[in-house]
Design a protein around this nucleic acid. Structure first.
Lengths: 235, 235
DNA sequence: CGGCTACTTGACTGTGGTCAATTGGTGTGG
DNA sequence: CCACACCAATTGACCACAGTCAAGTAGCCG
């Protein structure tokens, strides 16, 4: 299923943290085995239960990894951006993919088959350690998500999200800082483990308290102190 | 803080899946570096934010890994049994422990310092791959937990738990099968992301529907079919 | 201009958490 | 052996957070 070759595969792999420092020869080997693929928005990449015989590098675009509930509700586990990998964890231990993945926009992907990749790992301790670091980060994120879902209400989650978002874009949190949500609000809602209606209301509450002001898809921070207080000691 | 040596450290490590096939020499090296420790029930091993410069092997006993919420509510991420390791993920990537850990009963632990362990990993691709498999499993469990918390109600979670528990003890699910909970009900509640009161009521509901019968700390399965239906297609 | 999607707002409801009181079981000490 | 203390578990009353359904608005693109 390779729709050829709008991308320079080796270059795309280099852009990815996991492969950034891999020797040229190895990189080429992977590139030779990998399939590059361009997908329109909404393409289903895999579903829970599918055989996990590959993982993905996002060369350009965005992908959501998510779980679907009984009545069609959706919990997003992670949104994967350009230069990141996903589903690397699933290729170990032999089980199927535990979640589903779907492109959020036109996206170029590189699928790396697991068998040759595992062989490469045996010979590259550095690569393996980097991979371990990546999985460890994934684990931390999931622990955070569990904490959010189980122990914090929506308002706290939202405030925390805004604070983290500001920090990750290295905005200093003075009054007036502008945080772009970068996605639709319904997407954000499903990331935070709620629905768009509730997110709407919660944004409104934060506004009413004077902490923020919502302008289209951006959030202006009006009162960083208050936002921090509501976010409950998130870094 | 080493309270010496009620345990044979190398033997305890051998009992652990992670180290099961490690060459003798390496095992001894680790054993030489590791600190063995006997803890009474309720000993705090680490808290979120502590430096992650070690991980643990449970030589005998049980440990809970958990997150604490604002008003003291607790979400258990995992209960670690004899022969398992925990916190291995935290030693990668340099961050602190993301959760807390505490012994549930009198427990003997082996703490493996991360620095020499990381060095050992570079030389042992087999060990590293086994570790990757372990992390991958952790990740799957957390994804399941997120799914439970976000997309399923307590009754479904409970039914699913009972089914998984029966399977993991390889009980065949005929009517009359007896599933020991193996813990107090309040512990189980916090594992399922709820509180003991709600668990009580939910067990009662399952009884009222004729699916199970609760006898002390065991659950008798009366109607496996119904239980499966309520558990919503959990394996 | 029409049609589509994202978003907002309102009214309602249910799950499940909190608080409080009671029961039950177990181990300890008089 | 009984009395007491302690903890786990249960039950009841209450209520709030947030999800659902439905209607309406705003914004965007063809």
């Amino acid at each position: 299923m390779l729709s050829f070759l709008s991308v320079n595969v080796p270059a795309a792999l280099r852009n990815c943290r996991l492969f950034a420092e891999l020797p040229d020869a190895d990189l080429r080997r992977i590139a030779g085995l990998a399939a590059s693929r361009r997908c329109p928005a909404g393409t289903v990449l895999f579903e829970p239960g599918d055989r996990a015989d590959r993982f993905y590098v996002v060369a350009a675009g965005r992908v959501k990894v998510f779980k679907l509930g009984a009545q069609g509700r959706e919990q997003i586990l992670h949104v994967v951006h350009t230069g990141e990998t996903f589903a690397e964890a699933a290729i170990f231990g032999g089980g199927p993919f535990p979640a589903a993945a779907e492109t959020l926009e036109e996206t170029t992907l590189i699928a790396v088959p697991s068998a040759p990749f595992l062989a490469l790992l045996r010979a590259n301790p550095d690569l393996t350690l980097r991979l371990l670091g990546g999985l460890s980060l994934w684990l931390r994120r999931l622990v955070d998500l569990v904490e959010d879902l189980s122990l914090r209400d929506v308002q706290t989650r939202l405030a925390g999200f805004l604070l983290r978002e500001a920090e990750s874009r290295s905005l200093d949190l003075r009054s007036g800082a502008r945080i772009p949500l970068g996605t639709t609000k319904s997407l954000l809602a499903r990331r935070l483990g709620t629905v768009s209606e509730t997110l709407s209301r919660t944004l409104f509450k934060l506004q009413k308290e004077g902490a923020i002001r919502v302008v289209g898809r951006d959030v202006l921070v009006l009162d960083p102190k208050r936002l921090r207080a509501l976010g409950g000691g998130v870094s």
